[in-house]
Design a protein around this nucleic acid. Structure first.
Lengths: 157, 157
DNA sequence: CGTGAAAGGGTTCACTC
DNA sequence: GAGTGAACCCTTTCACG
């Protein structure tokens, strides 16, 4: 799907404030409410907008530990990967998981309340995942950047 | 701040649907609209809810490449870290950046349109960051999980 | 894509328990 | 803290130009 500068302006505005009303959005991007609503519909239906979410502070919920985990599996057969992926999706503490090229097979970002909590997650979840042969944990000391999307160039907005 | 089960239910609902109206939310968690609105106010003011955002598909905007980058600096002096961090915050393609314990100093998640785009980012941004002595790029083959927050246990909701 | 109007809901009080 | 009721404002969604 192609996006013109008005679409990008809509996306940018909704990225900044996901609860903005259609009327406010329309005014912001210089469109009538009806036209804006039609564009928004398209952006949602085409999958460009994947959803709207409150951003909850992990820290406020007690999750102050971020761990980057590298995992290797015993082989890269389709079946092996599939079984591993189905299992890991069930762990609520795994925020991000990517299948990677290179030395390790998967990179995870895990949220834990504290070290004891991470030990539990490591024992009950990560170690229990099928086909795992190597787990490497690195702890985050500080969060420098955490944004959900590539910033849309304000110049076009 | 303490959170009871109703607070958690509110957070969970708003995490799933950030555009839910206060009226719908109130019904969902079994509260009157006014009581629900008061709680929501507190959650926002206390920083438990950090904001509401549309989740835009990076892929739909042309960012189909995810790269995990490990970076080492020449020393870990306060000044070195600070200068590096200030510089990296200006790169719009860096979605996530953590200061880490262990072998590497920083872990980044970078979004690029394609390999050529990543080469540009690597050359113009990453290599140009101050104090960098080692850059290690790994490319994501597939996204398995990508959620913004720890799932709130549906049992309490 | 814009306009206009109708219809329906949502938010926010003050007040009460 | 929570519920009720009502006023007011706003939003969405048409059909039409």
């Amino acid at each position: 799907m192609e996006h013109d500068s008005i679409d990008l302006a809509i996306l940018s505005a909704l990225q900044a404030d996901g609860r903005m009303s259609n009327a406010a959005l329309a005014e912001r991007v210089g469109l009538s409410p009806s036209a804006c609503s039609r564009r928004l519909d398209n952006l949602e239906k085409s999958g460009t907008i994947r959803g709207y979410h409150a951003r909850v502070s992990n820290r406020a919920l007690g999750y102050s530990l971020t761990v980057i985990v590298h995992i290797s599996l015993s082989g890269q057969f389709q079946k092996t990967l599939r079984e591993f992926e189905e299992a890991i999706k069930r762990c609520p503490n795994v925020l991000v998981c990517y299948l990677m090229s290179g030395e390790y097979d998967y990179v995870l970002r895990v949220a834990a309340k504290d070290l004891a909590d991470y030990e539990r997650i490591h024992r009950d979840w990560l170690s229990a995942l099928p086909h795992v042969v190597k787990i490497n944990s690195s702890f985050a000391l500080r969060e420098i950047i955490d944004r959900p999307n590539v910033g849309i160039d304000p110049a076009i907005v």
